[in-house]
């Protein structure tokens, strides 16, 4: 099922029409969305710290092209 999503400056959102039948969106402002994103990043950073000393960086362009 290929779906279109709404692209905001720093996150994606569902097309609101999909939230009109069974379940409805609640009242939310951008600050609430930003808080969620901040909490998420903090949590993911902490998760990585918990499971290993550090996470190695991704492959460089050179590594990918060689």
């Amino acid at each position: 099922m290929a779906e279109k999503v709404i692209k905001k400056s720093d996150h994606y959102e569902v097309e609101p029409w999909r939230m009109t039948g069974y379940i409805h969106q609640q009242v939310m402002n951008d600050a609430a969305i930003q808080k969620i994103m901040q909490d998420k990043m903090m949590y993911l950073t902490w998760m990585h710290k918990q499971e290993a000393g550090r996470c190695l960086p991704g492959y460089t362009k050179e590594e990918l092209e060689s």
Binding site: V5, H11, Y12, E13, V14, M19, I23, H24, Q25, Q26, M28, A32, I33, K35, I36, M37, D39, K40, Y43
Partner: peptide, 19 residues
């Protein structure tokens, strides 16, 4: 409510969270 995956991983996309 902040840690619930509904909020943390779905809230910003769906604008529905655990409250």
């Amino acid at each position: 409510e902040l840690k619930c995956p509904n909020t943390m991983f779905g809230g910003d996309f769906y604008r529905v969270t655990t409250t």
